[in-house]
């Protein structure tokens, strides 16, 4: 099977850089190059004592959490509206809201920078990053939640109304439980995107750098690179954990509604 060999080779290409991470993270040497020097956990202990990093991580966690919540709320609104009655201009509006998905991030970054700094004269802060991240994460939330909302038979809601529930209680008792897995995976994915986002954060970061901005700073100093490797290892492990959770949530959602698995988040 030639295609299978090719696909596996492709997977290896995809994973090649990531496999190196733990190798150098546990390598007992300051130079990131082969041959390896021996096993060490010193870079991880150094991580534990770098307070600047802790501040950056804390910043990023706050930004990512709030981004996840806001973009998922906006995503629920748009995806729910998308599954409801058509009205003039609906497609256009949905397309416009999805636009950041195909917009170069640097454009989002500089346009917001201009508005915030030059026009409104505001100081950059975590909020400026959150605002931008919500903008770019919302399309992802919508894409994920669209799947969840459109899988729902519209007569389910009508059945609930017919059985005496109000609009709100029909949503709470029927729609919400059915889209909960979608909401969880939207939260997790927006969180992951925001946590990792650098291009925009670099432009909009205020006095407190986010984690990627902090890492960017470290990359310029060869001596700190093993620490970056250790940090990267933890991040990769964390990403895999979050993604696995998101995937489990998604599958549970499919099992719950009895729909066929068509695969993938996007």
């Amino acid at each position: 099977m030639k295609l299978r060999v090719y696909a596996i080779a492709y997977l290896i290409f995809l994973y090649a850089p990531i496999v190196l991470l733990p190798l150098f993270a546990f390598n007992d040497g300051t130079v990131i190059a082969f041959p390896l020097q021996g096993f060490s956990t010193q870079w991880f202990s150094e991580l534990a004592t770098t307070t600047a990093l802790h501040t950056a991580v804390k910043n990023s966690l706050i930004i990512a959490s709030l981004t996840a919540i806001f973009s998922t709320i906006l995503g629920v609104c748009a995806a729910r509206a998308g599954a409801m009655a058509h009205f003039p201009g609906k497609r256009g509006i949905l397309g416009f809201v999805m636009l950041p998905l195909v917009l170069p991030e640097i454009i989002v970054a500089v346009s917001l920078l201009i508005v915030l700094r030059q026009i409104l004269g505001l100081d950059l802060s975590n909020w400026s990053i959150i605002a931008a991240h919500v903008l770019i994460c919302t399309p992802f939330s919508i894409a994920i939640l669209n799947g969840a909302f459109q899988n729902i038979d519209p007569s389910l809601e009508e059945a609930a109304l017919d059985l005496g529930e109000s609009r709100w209680s029909a949503f709470r008792l029927v729609i919400l439980p059915l889209v909960t897995p979608g909401i969880i995976s939207s939260l997790l994915i927006s969180f992951t995107i925001s946590l990792d986002e650098f291009i925009i954060a670099f432009f909009l970061t205020g006095s407190n750098p986010t984690m990627p901005v902090y890492i960017w700073g470290l990359l310029r100093f060869p001596a700190s690179i093993p620490v970056v490797m250790a940090l990267g290892t933890i991040l990769v492990a964390l990403s895999i954990l979050l993604l696995t959770l998101a995937e489990i949530a998604r599958r549970r959602g499919l099992a719950r509604t009895g729909t066929k698995d068509t695969g993938g988040f996007l």
Partner: peptide
């Protein structure tokens, strides 16, 4: 009402 799709709450 009995719906065409039955609208049985799957959860």
């Amino acid at each position: 009402m009995v719906f065409q799709s039955y609208a049985i709450f799957p959860h």
